[in-house]
Design a protein around this nucleic acid. Sequence first.
DNA 1: CAGTGGTCTAGACCACTAT
DNA 2: TAGTGGTCTAGACCACTGG
Lengths: 236, 236
Amino acid sequence: MLKYQQIAAELEKYIEDNELQQGDKLPVLEMLMAQFKVSKSTITKSLELLERKGVVYQVRGSGIFVRRHKRKGYISLLSNQGFKKDLENASVTSKVLDLKVTKPTEEAAYSLNLGADDDVYYVKRIRYINGHALCVEESYFNKAIVPYLNREIAEVSIFTYIKEGLGLKIGFSDLYLKVDMLTEEEADLLGLKPGDPKLYGESIFHLTNGLPFDYSKIAYNFEEAHFFIQANSDFS
Amino acid sequence: MLKYQQIAAELEKYIEDNELQQGDKLPVLEMLMAQFKVSKSTITKSLELLERKGVVYQVRGSGIFVRRHKRKGYISLLSNQGFKKDLENASVTSKVLDLKVTKPTEEAAYSLNLGADDDVYYVKRIRYINGHALCVEESYFNKAIVPYLNREIAEVSIFTYIKEGLGLKIGFSDLYLKVDMLTEEEADLLGLKPGDPKLYGESIFHLTNGLPFDYSKIAYNFEEAHFFIQANSDFS
DNA sequence: CAGTGGTCTAGACCACTAT
DNA sequence: TAGTGGTCTAGACCACTGG
């Protein structure tokens, strides 16, 4: 693990363990440099990471402060690795409805830069959070990148398998969101009524080298799906 | 303007002007250093900015590549400054339904760290995009920070006024999202039916010094509200 | 193994905040 | 005006990609 990641992790743990609140001040840069025995740039880089993560904010001439949002139980739309991490005390489970090797739909081929004859893994799941149906998800994985999948993996975490089992590195994702009404099938699977509202998302995940490997369509249960985003304005 | 921001802006413009596509390669770091006559760290910082913005991705050992998402007309949930910037060819207008100085509601006071007796500006608007009703927005501004507002400002852009008129610096925001059904009043204002789906968001905007100054509740027209998020996994 | 991006350092200087 | 974070440099060294 890199120094700046290590330091960021330790600072985050320190904030967590001491239950620091919004606006609480952290030690000044010089102190942190001395404490961790690294140069200023390294500390700066750690703090940038924490800033982007929404953990701290820095005020020039004043100090480094803890940032805390005020609500619990919301799923972060930025974490990019499924939503397991955000809901510490929540158990996420999955029921696999379908899993097969097939040819991509037109939209899947387009999103994954594939031809109509390339193979993909198609996975359809219901995902539960603390026993409540959270969403219905249909995923297409480029088989050239993800050569093997099974129900056991899909029941736990496909992304963990991709990272740890296959040793692939996930780089970035595009997520498209809109609101719509549940189809009959989705309503049935989620235990809701057709015509009820849903959050509908399509996402494309890429490896660090830019190759898209996963195209997914997700319909969220409107009663369970609460999201949050922490944004910074340094590039707006 | 800082060097690294300037360089980032120029690179982005270059990509735009030359209509570079997903995966197109940019000059290597050494070239960029020479071209802009700055040190490696400065170029690196520019590219980090563009990476977070979703404009490029960098692959160690390989190069710097253009990142392009595949859909147009989606509103970025990260831009943090209203949605004007994302929709280049779209005109955003507002109809002010109410604007007054008043006392905060309980939730507004909580979100803005105010007491029940502090003054806030309350603004209620319908926002249109190319003539279509996009959302109904209710905002509360801490009057101690935003001492003056009028209908003329609210019809154009409150955020532009806050930044340019008042010289305040917007730092970061928390955005909470869920899906729900339109109330009768909202449906009426948006030209939809009660019970139709809506994306419902609450946001809290902070200055760079951490003070919250705006708490807003927004109900989006489900037919018009299409969003996207570009995420990176360097902190997941 | 050559090419390319990433990390880290040490230090100069700048810009903002608070008193 | 002292304290604090931000920018920028020059350069050493590391880690990954791809022929």
